[in-house]
Design a protein around this nucleic acid. Sequence first.
DNA 1: TTGACAAAACAGGACAACCGGTCTGTTTTA
DNA 2: TAAAACAGACCGGTTGTCCTGTTTTGTCAA
Lengths: 221, 221
Amino acid sequence: MARPGKRINDPEGMRKKVLDVAEDAFQARGYNASSIGDLMAAAGVSGGALHHHFPTKKALALAVIDERVAAAVEETWIAPVLAAASAREGVRAVFEAVATELEQQGFVRGCPLNNLAHELSLADPDFRIALAGIFDGWRRAISDKVRADQQVGRDEGTDPERFAALAVAAYSGAMSMAKAAQDASLLRDCLAGLERSALSPSQGGLAARRRNRILPRPRTL
Amino acid sequence: MARPGKRINDPEGMRKKVLDVAEDAFQARGYNASSIGDLMAAAGVSGGALHHHFPTKKALALAVIDERVAAAVEETWIAPVLAAASAREGVRAVFEAVATELEQQGFVRGCPLNNLAHELSLADPDFRIALAGIFDGWRRAISDKVRADQQVGRDEGTDPERFAALAVAAYSGAMSMAKAAQDASLLRDCLAGLERSALSPSQGGLAARRRNRILPRPRTL
DNA sequence: TTGACAAAACAGGACAACCGGTCTGTTTTA
DNA sequence: TAAAACAGACCGGTTGTCCTGTTTTGTCAA
């Protein structure tokens, strides 16, 4: 296969491979429990190469946070919410999509952002700021969507910031419990708790809107 | 002070001192980031003594979880909820009490249970089961309180399990965000999000009560 | 095109610090 | 007087980082 005398430099590919492995390891085992030796072996990368692209473990983690965790939040939350008919519909759709996905895959690894946030927020200011920024963008996307809804006359009684904070918090906490219990149905319980109250646009309005589907869209990520 | 030739055996006191230090260290820095050497130094305990009371680091962590984390949840959540006039009142009171406490102390260290749960749930089955059990008792206390309310005719439209799951999730997630942002006001935002909706007993004032069966089976675990 | 040549990319070993656990021995206590 | 409680040294393994080389690649003059 690979000729011993030949070598092909592929900086970007190697960097991506390291980030792939690190993202997965940090998610599955956490930052401190993932040694760079493990990462080197898993990625098939030499110490010198790793050190060339990421001088320190902290630099690697920062890259994972900025490039991968942020992208994951963007992909599984922000984009679907923006694409939904309304903020409430978007939140509901994401909850159900994630629950369905977790039920299919059989185990719960938790939310990448929350996993790292709990372990690293207090460990280093740089980590904390990077993680807080992702939380911020997450909430902002939802609250902006609520404001957009309101400009069309919907949900005028809802405070955008508070609704966004509750949605993100409920999801984060639900994933935390689901991870500990290894039971994705807790996500559905939390969504149901929101449904009959916070997520019903006409505030407990029964007659209003009843046509929402059970499972909007598979949305495999 | 302490005579060099004299020694006083105090097994329980020494055990308590180690648990105090470990609880604090695990909360502030996490499990993996806290070395037993640090703990020994902080507690002023020799290696032999520590090993006598806690053979392994895992045993120490398990003791912290079973005796301290569970007690913390009991003290700050379960007892206040049980003592409150209703489940909703209890939840509101705890949110506000914690928010006020965090604002006074100026920084947010997060929820001890969630901090350890994120780091250890996937690391070891024993950890996971112990942590999941605490989450379970937490939710059960709230749902039991809701059922007690309902036996007096209140909140009959509320699903106890779903309400409890949402309350715990919202709190857990709010603390997660508050820790990352170092901003306790996020707790108040989430409470407000719950207030005007889920936490209002008369469900928006309209024709309350509506058994929504939006999601398939209730599925209590 | 070619041929230096410097910089980037990569390989792999070395290293000191640290980790958690064990071990032997001493002191206290029931 | 034996067991419990404690002290402190010790050890093999791991950690993250650094260091010295080697190979590849882009650049630019000839």
